[in-house]
Design a protein around this nucleic acid. Structure first.
Lengths: 165, 165
DNA sequence: GCATTAGTACTCGGATACGAATTGTCCGAGTACGCCAGG
DNA sequence: CCTGGCGTACTCGGACAATTCGTATCCGAGTACTAATGC
């Protein structure tokens, strides 16, 4: 089991966009800030747009911005935009195959094995949905946040030295 | 994100072994019961042995049996034997790369982004560890359990028709 | 000086190759039982 | 009839290919700004 690294990218980009406010941030500015391959980052940003997390603005001065306020976006929304909403565990219903061949009338409810896995998946998603993007942003170092705000206002211009505090 | 199908196989095999008691069940009997490719099933069973969940007995009349009582084995033990114990989310520390380049002195603690993901992973594992193999076995239909016991006593012999109840 | 219009440069979006991990398979090492020969 | 040894058949264990998914990339469609041109 392995999550796509795009999840980490999407979360950090969303945090940067949360600090950017209303101004649109171009894909190139995002990839340049984190030193990511922008061509591949585009794929994940597209997924976020399809999921309704981000809004894409075409043309010059365009880019991406949050589709709604940061306190209305949960971490789960971003993760599900990249990884999908289906459970990572897929029940193959092997209880109905082979020699065991439990008849269908006993398989009305979900397989207990699958239910345990689905319950765990629900717990995972519940944990992710309990944190909003705004709350997560508040946990980041304030200096990093201010540096991000400076960047999005004028990308690719030299940034002042990092001020600790 | 996708879990290996071997997880489902391992759980069902473990349940069958839990009903088998002390008698060893051969790999061929397990794969024949669920109609699974035994050559590939061997790979997953080996992982379970390495994790200390099962015990392998070589030679004729050999096979696999639980390494400890079913109430001392959790679902998490089986899942981690197949999928591993590392979190599916891997933090690439992109906060320290590129233009953002948060200095190391501000990165003492784990990245807040990664922490959210790790917390969710902990919740997932906690949910899985809350169910023991014995408890899961009790949730299975009793008729299926008795059918399994009949099979492991004399594999590859015709089973009586399924009795609902 | 002002409005119009063509050009341009920048943006996002979908379709297309590459690599790795999971899936699937095979053959070899080891062991307990069964059979045979000898006493 | 009993005992010892050998052969066999079955078991698990590690090493070797095929396929699917994630990774990475490119080029095309669309749009707002810019600048030149005509009035």
């Amino acid at each position: 089991m392995k999550l796509s690294q795009g999840v980490e990218w999407a979360l950090h980009c969303a945090l940067l966009l949360a600090d950017a406010g209303e101004g649109a941030v171009s894909r190139r500015a995002l990839s340049g800030y984190f030193d990511l391959p922008d061509a591949y980052l585009a794929k994940h940003l597209k997924s976020l747009v399809r999921a309704g997390v981000l809004t894409a603005i075409p043309g010059p001065r365009g880019g991406f911005r949050l589709a709604k306020s940061a306190d209305r976006i949960t971490v789960l929304d971003i993760v599900e935009a990249i990884e999908g909403t289906v459970s990572p565990f897929t029940c193959a219903e092997i209880r109905q195959r082979g020699t065991c061949a439990v008849p269908a009338e006993l398989c009305a409810g979900p397989c207990p094995v699958a239910k345990v896995m689905y319950d765990a998946d629900d717990a995972w998603r519940a944990s992710l949905s309990s944190v909003t993007l705004a709350e997560l942003s508040g946990r980041m170092p304030s200096s990093a946040r201010s540096r991000g705000r400076t960047w999005v206002l004028d990308p690719f211009s030299p940034l002042p030295p990092y001020s600790v505090g």
